[in-house]
Design a protein around this nucleic acid. Structure first.
Length: 299
DNA sequence: TTGCAGGGGTCAA
DNA sequence: TTGACCCCTGCA
């Protein structure tokens, strides 16, 4: 008991217990939904259902039951400075979900992925991760990101095991093609190195994107090799930079065609529909729809 | 066992 | 608008 330290923070009760922080009063959170809805590639499910992962240069374990979010290998200070924002705990997801349940399709999708939260991930890591995602499969994407981190990142400890942070811009900009190819990312290797060099040289400023409107931010990212509209939108959405984008990949095309259009719909049609129908909440809508489509194999 | 299609897209012609 | 593209897995 002597190790415990309690406090209240922005509507949550925080309990620090040894190396854990327990956050009470968390709703709209399900680790499976959060970590497997397709927004991230570095969280690994453990035997007990919790997740281990790295972010912000740290390795943590995350579990959840009833209304308690438990983060291990951290402190209250890190929770307040880092994890509160990373897990988007300041946002009212109940309100977003109500607004999005405007038809039967969205009611089903939101109820299915009820515990999704959009993580505010590091934009650099998100950018490279989604360059790797092009015409690729999720297990392969995860393996490549993991190998890049093991090869070029820094070791951080969790449960007596080493995890590796995602390498910084300079490191990848100076990396040799041979070393990057060890991550088995094929034709994407050259994109990774070239994009890294352009970001390092200031040809594209990731830090400035938040000040641009979504369309301009998208065009700015598309200057980078390996970045088209879909990768740009994912980068903006999963880094918490812009929430009105609607990343449209094959799964979103399928679900929109099957459920809304009742026919095959073009990329442009879907983008326009999402803008009109979901507005500022398009990014959230996309995430519920994507998860619903992929988990239910809607084709 | 071998062979082939296809995958969270992007690029170039 | 249409193929090619690294690499790998799943399935004939």
């Amino acid at each position: 008991m002597g190790d415990e330290n309690n406090m209240e923070y922005k509507g949550y009760e925080l309990i620090e217990d040894k190396d854990r922080v327990i956050i009470e009063g968390v709703g709209n959170f399900n680790p499976v939904h959060v970590f497997e809805c397709g927004q991230c590639f570095r969280w690994i499910k453990q035997k007990d259902g919790s997740y281990n992962g790295t972010a912000k240069g740290r390795a943590i374990n995350v579990s959840f039951n009833s209304d308690k979010l438990i983060i291990s290998n951290t402190t209250i200070e890190d929770f307040i400075n880092i994890w509160f924002e990373y897990f988007d705990l300041g946002r009212d997801y109940s309100s977003i979900k109500e607004k999005l349940k405007k038809d039967e399709i969205m009611r089903k999708a939101v109820d299915f992925g009820y515990g999704i939260r959009l993580l505010k991930q590091d934009i650099w890591e998100t950018l490279i991760s989604f360059i790797i995602s092009a015409n690729n499969r999720i297990p392969m994407i995860m393996r490549t990101v993991d190998t890049l981190s093991r090869t070029f990142g820094t070791a951080v400890h969790l449960d007596d095991k080493d995890y590796y942070t995602f390498p910084g811009t300079d490191i990848l900009a100076d990396a040799s093609m041979e070393r990057v190819q060890e991550s088995r990312c094929g034709f994407r290797c050259k994109y990774i190195i070239q994009a890294s060099q352009m970001v390092r040289n200031g040809d594209v400023s990731l830090g400035r994107l938040a000040q641009l409107d979504a369309g301009s931010a998208r065009e700015e990212l598309k200057k980078l090799p390996g970045v088209g509209g879909k990768v740009a939108d994912c980068t903006l959405l999963y880094s918490g930079t812009k929430y009105e984008v609607f990343p449209t990949d094959v799964w979103v095309k399928r679900v929109m065609g099957a459920l809304y259009f009742k026919r095959e719909a073009s990329h442009a049609e879907i983008q326009e529909f999402a803008k009109q129908y979901f507005g500022e909440l398009a990014g959230f809508a996309q995430q519920y729809l994507f998860y619903y489509a992929r988990e239910n194999k809607i084709r």
